[in-house]
Amino acid sequence: MSLCEGVVQVLEDSARQQGFRTVKTVWLEIGALSGVEIEAMRFSFDVIKKGTLAEEARLEIVEVPGQAWCLPCAKNVTINQRFDACPDCGSYQLQVTGGEELRVKELEVE
């Protein structure tokens, strides 16, 4: 719930700065490694948006895969969760490089 409250706060701050009145659609990028439960986010957003400028907004979620740099392979690989092995060589010497984000990617506003 607190993540959705933060998203609505970002929307309200943006509305003050940019002069829009309502939000029609919110696109959120959520990384596979962010620890955010997508269905919980959808439910929480529906609860939190009531009485705000996003009351009628639709939430669209863009899932971002986990990315890591494999030290032995010396290449970027896709991982599903932290502490996965490299899908190519099986090494656990991975440095996470992406998929941890939770950000407002785009808004449709009036």
Rank of each mutant, 00 (worst) to 15 (best):
S2V: 13
S2K: 08
L3N: 06
C4Y: 03
G6V: 07
V8M: 04
Q9C: 07
V10Q: 05
V10Y: 13
L11C: 10
E12F: 09
S14M: 13
S14R: 10
A15G: 07
A15N: 06
A15L: 08
Q17H: 07
F20T: 04
T22P: 01
V23C: 03
V23M: 03
K24A: 14
E29H: 13
G31S: 07
A32P: 01
L33E: 09
S34H: 06
I38F: 04
E39P: 00
E39Y: 03
A40W: 09
A40Y: 04
M41T: 08
R42Q: 15
S44A: 14
S44E: 06
F45V: 02
D46S: 15
V47R: 09
V47T: 11
K49C: 11
G51A: 10
T52C: 07
L53T: 06
L53S: 05
L53N: 02
L53P: 06
A54F: 05
E55A: 12
A57D: 08
E60N: 13
I61F: 09
V62C: 06
V62D: 15
E63V: 09
W69N: 08
L71K: 11
L71V: 13
P72S: 11
A74F: 07
A74D: 15
A74M: 14
A74V: 01
V77A: 01
I79W: 05
I79P: 02
N80Y: 01
R82I: 09
F83M: 11
A85W: 03
P87G: 08
P87D: 05
D88A: 13
C89H: 14
C89I: 02
Y92W: 12
Y92Q: 12
T97V: 12
T97I: 11
G99F: 00
G99V: 05
L102S: 02
L102N: 00
R103G: 04
V104I: 15
K105S: 13
L107Q: 10
L107D: 11
V109C: 03
E110Y: 12
